[in-house]
Design a protein around this nucleic acid. Structure first.
Lengths: 158, 158
DNA sequence: TATCAGTTATTGACATAGCAGATACTGTCG
DNA sequence: CGACAGTATCTGCTATGTCAATAACTGATA
């Protein structure tokens, strides 16, 4: 018994929605990742970092700030930035007035590669994700999941 | 569609919807993973496998089938199943009539641990994901993203 | 029955991420 | 100055995932 209603929230509904979110993410990323590597020559993790630095402007970001805006740990970021730096897409610079700190800045090459990758990536997301939903559905999903943008569980840097 | 409003172009919509899906997944998993490890003693990857085997019934699943139902590669699965087997939660058995094959089956202990973990995990998903959406939103998300469950991505551009 | 292409699963070499501890610097207090 | 607590970043060890190559087996063919 206990068909579904009665409970303010049918358990199966949450499960189905969660499953949808999970699979949409995984499936799309599984296509987007190799695509990005083929076209841009670097993985999504790099694009995350490059995009953050792009948005941050000319002064770049400190490792600490980068950590706050990404889904990596500090040590993971250190190595990630190492690789991107070795590839010449970012540069570590001294922070005036704090010799402990480092700020990470896009190089000209990094900016170029970011721009190209960003465009390619968005086209792919449109094709593999967006195209599977109607406009009404897109709007519903975007609206329903918007709360997760600003995460109240995680510390948000100001 | 052909709803041409300047304020909400489909491109921006796709981006917002994708961003929502991405963030909902990341934020929720970042909480669910440590929680599961604390309560069940194993990570989400194990639960994925255990849940698939649970659903599959007494005969379990072959590695191949497990691969099709999960988001791992074959070799990744081999090692994942190795670990779970070492922990005693699954068992590899011969497949009658095909000596290449292996079928993976839940042990009694595996079933117990699965049940407990599944309950805990669902409670957490309800709390951290489901509770942020209304029932209408849940329904909309579940419906919109259901196509991703069975992903038969057309090999050519679709 | 010998062979050969295809299938199933594992293994080896390698890449990347996390945790915990190390390293380098800052600012304060005596 | 010298000690100390706090901050910013990096490194060592380890865990886990992927790709490419391998081993074991199947079914068909000559």
């Amino acid at each position: 018994m206990a068909k579904d209603e009665d409970a303010s929230r049918p358990a199966g509904l949450v499960f189905d929605a969660w499953r949808g979110v999970l699979f949409a993410t995984s499936r799309t990323l599984q296509i987007a990742e190799p695509d990005l590597i083929a076209k841009a020559g670097f993985p999504l993790t790099w694009l995350d970092v490059l995009a953050q630095l792009y948005d941050a402007g000319d002064d770049g970001l400190r490792m600490q700030e980068l950590e706050g805006r990404s889904l990596f740990t500090r040590s993971g970021l250190t190595r990630l930035v190492d690789r991107i730096e070795t590839a010449g897409l970012v540069r570590r610079e001294a922070v005036p007035g704090d010799r402990r700190g480092v700020r990470v800045v896009l190089t000209a090459e990094g900016r170029r590669r970011h721009d190209a990758a960003f465009i390619d990536h968005n086209i792919l997301i449109e094709r593999k994700f967006g195209r599977r939903l109607t406009e009404v559905q897109l709007r519903a999903v975007a609206e329903a999941l918007a709360p997760f943008w600003h995460d109240d569980e995680a510390p948000t840097e100001g």
